[in-house]
Simulated assay, not measured.
Amino acid sequence: MSDEKRILVTLDGSKRSKRTIDYLCSFTPFKTRQVTLFNITTPVPEAYYDLNQNSFGKIAVSQVKAWEMGQKTIMTEFLKEARQKMITAGYVPANIEVKLSKQEKGVARGILNEIGSNAYHTLVIRRKGSANSIMGVTMGGVAAKLVEKADKIPLIIAGTRQIQHYLCIAVDGSAGSKRVIQYTAEIMGKTDCRILLCAIMRTTVTDSVPEGKDPFVDMSIQAKCKLENALAKAKENLTQGGIPDDRIETRLIQGAESRAGALLDTARAAKCDTIVLGRKGISDVEAFDLGRIPRKIIYASRKFTIWLIP
């Protein structure tokens, strides 16, 4: 992760992307960071310029060029207004950069190239972009590609729940889970946030169950101990990062039919606004860019803001 702590925010000028700006204005920890507001404009296909060979075509080409300029002007004005709104919300003017780029090989590819060419700390996107997005579809095409492929940078998918800085963090003791705690401490340290650390297991173990009687029971007891230790260590690391002990709650959920479902139910019941999890858990399969539980959470949690940490 870069020490510059620069945040890349993708915007397309839609009403939905205005909500991304609302999220940034509400989320206090980012107000001290450097932010790049980024848009990739979609040009007219080059074939249109072949019309330049006759008088009728020349008129069409001039109209196309005017349309392109008009779109660029609209987007430039949108980014300017977004920047001003963030400044009004408390961002430092010198820390907000506006960047307009021309599409060459697809919007998602352009965003990935921008990430690869610059030292960004975090990427902020929305689930869907323009109003032309298909109704009922949870993720737009660009967002889905970025969720899969932007696997080297913390990814924030801005939701619609009111931001109260109340985070539900999935803990499983894996290396990815430890990076989640590290990132959260870095972002939320010394803020007035609340943290709910949540570990989930499918089996149920009572304190009265003796060890050494049944191999399956023994495995469940060991799993419970491991998760309890992971929760305790996560809380310790967060307090060391500047989050008060009394602002952190730990919860071990047993007998869950679905770990993703249990995590969502817990976050909803606690009225958290953000769910934080690693890209992969204990079963860190290198052939897959995203684990099963994160995938389920992202597609089932339309209103939550999701932090996905590599």
Rank of each mutant, 00 (worst) to 15 (best):
residue 8 L to N: 03
residue 11 L to R: 09
residue 24 L to R: 14
residue 34 Q to G: 14
residue 37 L to H: 07
residue 41 T to F: 14
residue 43 P to T: 07
residue 46 E to V: 12
residue 57 G to H: 12
residue 59 I to F: 06
residue 69 M to C: 06
residue 71 Q to T: 02
residue 75 M to H: 05
residue 78 F to N: 07
residue 83 R to N: 15
residue 89 A to C: 07
residue 90 G to S: 02
residue 95 N to W: 02
residue 103 Q to L: 14
residue 109 R to S: 13
residue 116 G to Q: 11
residue 118 N to D: 10
residue 121 H to C: 08
residue 131 A to L: 11
residue 134 I to N: 07
residue 141 G to A: 14
residue 146 L to F: 05
residue 149 K to Q: 09
residue 158 A to P: 02
residue 159 G to K: 13
residue 167 L to H: 13
residue 169 I to W: 00
residue 172 D to H: 03
residue 181 I to E: 00
residue 183 Y to V: 07
residue 185 A to T: 01
residue 187 I to S: 07
residue 192 D to H: 14
residue 195 I to S: 00
residue 196 L to T: 03
residue 200 I to H: 11
residue 204 T to M: 14
residue 206 T to Y: 13
residue 207 D to W: 07
residue 209 V to I: 11
residue 212 G to W: 05
residue 217 V to P: 04
residue 221 I to Y: 13
residue 222 Q to A: 15
residue 223 A to I: 06
residue 224 K to G: 06
residue 229 N to K: 13
residue 232 A to P: 00
residue 233 K to D: 09
residue 243 I to V: 01
residue 244 P to N: 06
residue 255 G to W: 06
residue 255 G to Q: 12
residue 260 A to M: 02
residue 263 L to P: 03
residue 265 D to R: 10
residue 266 T to Y: 12
residue 266 T to E: 15
residue 269 A to Q: 10
residue 271 K to T: 05
residue 272 C to E: 04
residue 273 D to E: 05
residue 275 I to H: 01
residue 276 V to C: 09
residue 277 L to K: 02
residue 277 L to G: 03
residue 280 K to Y: 01
residue 281 G to T: 00
residue 287 A to P: 03
residue 290 L to I: 05
residue 298 I to G: 01
residue 300 A to F: 10
residue 301 S to T: 09
residue 305 T to H: 04
